[in-house]
């Protein structure tokens, strides 16, 4: 690892004779990559929109995310569309301040824009919390399995192999049905069905690294297993884990949305992207008014796209061979 990073530093050509680490090289490459910058900006904007944008939108439109506005449904009970104002029962447009529904209303007369922004909070929160939990479980088990080998390794290996072979969403739905819906339950369930990927990555890195001379050297000067694990092995796994984490946050948004879609997500009336999409589709409302399915769907698509592009860029930036091509 250290040999490689020395070489990258030389080839990266920072101009000085001082060797540059992989981290600095990767960061410099990322800053120069327009796709990475664009994807990262979209994600930053998204987080901003979720944290600050949601209350601002609620304030400006005067619509709270869970409030139902009967006037936002037209005479025949259908929700109003994009950029339309509320109706009176006789079809006359009702126009005090804040009656504009920028992205239309859903089947219950709730403001789609405000809901999609508040939904971003829950969707991003669930996905990142589940990713953190999965990383904690996976890194711990992977490091232990890779370092200790023997029975621990065998058990962890069997567990990951068995778990990876199964359709995870199905068991997750089954589990959610039994333990009941709820924010924390969803986070734990997603983590329970994703921890084995980081565990495998960390294990293989740990197995490869622990035979290197610097670990032997550390052991020979009397470092305890705990110190070797935390100080010498853990820093070696951050690069593959970072690539993994960026791709998996996006995947977890999908996972949470999928659970909501199958009726076992965060309970109503809390807005989440998956739940918005699922109500639009399962009620059949999207066949009459496409925007109720288009808005949350495009939100998920945009987020996934940004995470996928960023993950790709990070992978390329961390590739030690990239500088030579």
């Amino acid at each position: 690892m250290d040999l490689q990073s020395l070489e990258i530093g030389r080839i990266g050509g920072s101009g000085t004779s001082k060797p540059v680490g992989l981290r600095a090289t990767a960061l410099r490459r990322l800053r120069r990559d327009p796709v990475a910058v664009a994807a990262a900006s979209v994600l930053a904007l998204l987080v901003l929109a979720a944290i600050i944008g949601a209350p601002i939108a609620a304030y400006l439109t005067g619509h709270s995310p869970n409030a139902q506005y009967p006037l936002a449904l037209s005479n025949d009970g259908l929700p109003i569309g994009i950029m339309q104002r509320t109706f009176f029962a006789n079809g006359v447009v009702h126009n005090p301040h804040g009656s504009l529904f920028i992205l239309g209303a859903d089947a219950l007369g709730r403001d789609e824009l405000v809901r999609v922004l508040y939904g971003a909070r829950i969707s991003l929160l669930v996905a990142s919390a589940a990713t953190c939990l999965a990383l904690i479980i996976g890194v711990t088990l992977g490091l232990l399995a890779g370092y200790l080998e023997g029975p621990t390794d065998a058990i962890v290996n069997r567990l990951t192999e068995t778990a990876m072979a199964f359709p995870s969403l199905l068991l997750a739905v089954a589990l959610a049905v039994v333990v009941g819906p709820g924010l924390l339950n969803i986070v734990v369930i997603i983590a329970l069905f994703t921890w084995f990927y980081p565990a495998r990555i960390v294990r293989s890195t740990a197995v490869a690294t622990k035979r290197l001379t610097f670990v032997t050297a550390a052991r020979s000067i009397g470092a305890r297993p705990r110190r070797i694990l935390l100080v010498h092995l853990l820093p070696q796994v951050w690069a593959p884990l970072l690539v993994y984490a960026t791709s998996i946050i996006g995947y977890n948004i999908l996972f949470a949305a999928g659970l909501a879609y199958l009726g076992v997500g965060v309970p109503q009336p809390t807005a989440t992207w998956g739940q918005m999409l699922s109500t639009a589709v399962t009620s059949g409302m999207y066949q009459i008014d496409l925007s109720v399915a288009l808005v949350p769907g495009l939100a998920i698509l945009l987020t996934m796209l940004a995470f996928n592009l960023l993950g790709d860029s990070i992978r390329d930036a961390l590739d030690p061979k990239a500088g030579r091509r």
Binding site: S278, A280, Y286, G297, M304, N308
Partner: peptide, 25 residues
């Protein structure tokens, strides 16, 4: 390929059905 990877199947399915598979739409 990257766009295809980002499209959730539970969104694509209703969209395809809307465009090609349902009577009035």
């Amino acid at each position: 390929s990257i766009i295809g990877m980002s499209i959730p199947v539970f969104w694509l399915a209703p969209m395809v059905a809307y465009l090609f598979g349902f009577e009035p739409t």
